[in-house]
Design a protein around this nucleic acid. Sequence first.
RNA 1: GGGCGCGUAGCUCAGCGGUAGAGCACUGCCUUGACAUGGCAGGGGUCACAGGUUCAAUCCCUGUCGCGCCCA
Length: 902
Amino acid sequence: MLEKTFIPADVEAPLYSLWESAGAFAADPESGKPPFAVMIPPPNVTGTLHAGHALNMTLQDVLVRWRRMQGHDVLWQPGTDHAGIATQLVVERTLRSEGSGRDQIGRDAFIERVWEWKQQSGGSITHQLRRLGSSLDWARERFTMDEGLSQAVREVFVTLHRQGLIYRDRRLVNWDPEFGSAISDLEVESREVRGHLWYLRYPVADAPGEFITVATTRPETMLGDSAVAVHPEDARYAALVGRQVVLPLTGRRIPIVADDYSDPEKGTGAVKITPAHDFNDFEVGQRHGLPMPQILDTQARIVLDDIRDELQPVEGIADPAFVRSLAGQARGAARGAIVAELERLGLLDRIEAHTHQVPHAERGGAVVEPRLTTQWYCDARHLAGPAVAAVQQGRMQFVPRQWENTFFAWMRDIQPWCISRQLWWGHRIPAWYGPDGEVFVAHDAQAAQAQAQAHYGVRPGEPAPALTQDPDVLDTWFSSALWPFSTLGWPERSPELARYYPTAALITGFDIIFFWVARMMMMGLHFMDEVPFRTVFIHGLVRDEQGRKMSKSLGNGIDPLEMIDQYGADALRFTVCAITGLGRDARLGARRVEESRSFVTKLWNAARFCEMNGVRPDPAFDPRSARHPLSRWIVAEAQHAAADMNAALEAFRYDEYAQAGYRFTWNRFCDWFLEFAKPILGSAEHPDAAEVRAAAAHVLGLILRLLNPMMPFVTETLWAGLGYGERGGLIRAAWPVADQTLHDDTVAGEVDWAIRFITEIRAVRAEMNVPPARMAPVLLRDAGPETVARAHRWSEAIGRMARVSEVGVLEGVMPKGAAQLVLDEATLVLPLHGLIDVEVERSRLGKEDARLADEIGKAERKLANPDFVARAKPEVVDEMRARLQGFRSDRARIQAALGRLD
RNA sequence: GGGCGCGUAGCUCAGCGGUAGAGCACUGCCUUGACAUGGCAGGGGUCACAGGUUCAAUCCCUGUCGCGCCCA
């Protein structure tokens, strides 16, 4: 017997273990089934499950469970990524709390500590994914720092280097002074900051009393200025181009150059150029061959190495002692000191309030400092070409399609990808340097050594050249980019690789189209010669109930685990599906999840009702040979639902899938079928009882299977509880294939008629305020023989569900004080003398009459339009004629009913 | 500045050439033996605005206004 209430917490964990231990999640490359692979977007190993994961993972799980039931050999690849910066920070924090630090313990010990941390507390998210019900193939779990995946990383690095697609370059990079590392331009976000515009007077060299005023948002960088730029067509400064200014404080002479970059409209039209600390200035510097002195160190403190030798005392303009005093100061403090000194010297023209965009590190939030450094770069432009072509040719498809524009736009304008990071945790760059700085890129130290010996012409017996490995590691996304094939064993030509690559689908959020999707496309096409996935489904962001982004600072985040504890995983999963339409963000709130729980409860209670009424799965039941109209009807309705739900999933319309399941279960199966069937199901000797019970069981079984991908726990529990199959076996059951031939117009028409009959009578009674306890007869007037026959066939249901004492045919005179309603050709008369107010009834019928008159008018006007009749599709014209006729006859009956009122 | 998306019932959203829908909320009635986490019924919409195309526009096109996101 099923419990009175479904308690998710009691079944979820045991069921999950059962599935897992039975191998239900395991891919089976040996099976003859068609493969269907989905790669998890690997969560950070430091991460914990948030609402975004809940959405993303649920959508994947629904997809793979559905495909699995359809008979595919599903591989849903689990794993985590090593999250370089995030993980390093976690461990560094621990070290700090121990009064230690990474520099104290050294690199090797530090890495060991990270692995220890990973062993103990890393990857807790994988356990949280289990709580959600995610049917990942855990035996194949991978980590981006695994030996196999690391080998893939080295292989890719070495190969791309050999092909000239990975190289070292000295250029400006986004530098995070807090982490002391380069970061990707994708990891930088502009934030609007209310700052100032400082107007600095630079004295023109050899022209006492003459100045050029430059406006800057960053006065402290002036120590590194190597020019002043003005627009070539700016008449104000034409005479100054080619001359020099004496850079205040340093006394250095720098040129005034003409460059389009300078905007005559902005500030004074003259800008200072600091090539080593600004991306635009860097380009100006390159164009004019300017020196690029660096004046900020890795922690954004003033450093004088590049300018110390050029410091020149100039009376009233430059004092080297002052500049030397700045060494080691943080950029903020240096700014204050420099501005004060310039003011003292009378070189500060004015200060204006100014709002501008300042680059910040997405992670950590530090103000990003552009720095001139040597880093490793990947030639993304070269790799982007095939990726763009693949999407253009439809070999990979975005759903919704419009995301391909985002993809193309970024790919068209792609910049060299800085792949080195000044961290310890990550894939160490497989490059070694000889004593003279010569670079040897190889799979390992030995191979590098061999290269070095060949290069230096070392003969056997001679001492080997001392090599030092590059201290840097690779961007975490570098290894993530290989995920679709590195997890399958590449560079080994494993059977898995052959079978599951390219994968079927990738499900992810738009925020990582650049970070991840694009890079997987590039690497996949380059190394596998084929796209990594056929379809990329892009879902929206999870927002709170008010549509705000969920954030820690707002504290408006929904904790999925809390939702699961409170309402069950099925309720959360149903909610996620219901709110996932195409191309829209999803609003998630506890209220929504609570509502979904009602649906779980409804299903549970319906199943329990079935069980109590002897509904048992009957393998002998053949829906084709069902005879009773109720059986035939619900079986056919179930086929429509199955078709709709399947089509919705094919189109990634999770919302439609959820809605169709909800509608069929609640508004068809429960509200009508079970209600109609109650007396039959409750009876031991009813002649159709066996068949209707079997039909009920058949349809309930379909419901369980159709809902299983979305609500696996409750459906599995019912599946076993009601005897459909063994515990935990629903996950392997066959997905229902809709059989539209089971539809029967006659049966559908008849049940539809009964539903309308009952609904109409209910509505009139409610409107007339007839107490439910008061039963009343219904008399048919002008009814055709088939209607009379139907009324008799359905009299029991009509009586019970519409509070009708008896259904008869009106003979003789019209009863006084009766309510009337029109249903097809018949008029239903409800003699409720004394219970209804004739005037209320008159007004009710009058309103109906007016409504019909309105509809008739509209239809007549359309049909009177010769253009409509001539140009509209014939079936539309026919339909309009039929509607008009229907309205007219309904109205005639309503008017007749009005005439009978007194 | 460029691109994408969105303005439909009080709220959240579906629909997208021919009858405007759902869930929730709201109102009234109902403790009927599956379910009050329930049942029955009801009210509520110039489909942002203005033009255009069409026999016909919430739907297609153009523009305007408002909102959001991405890129610069």
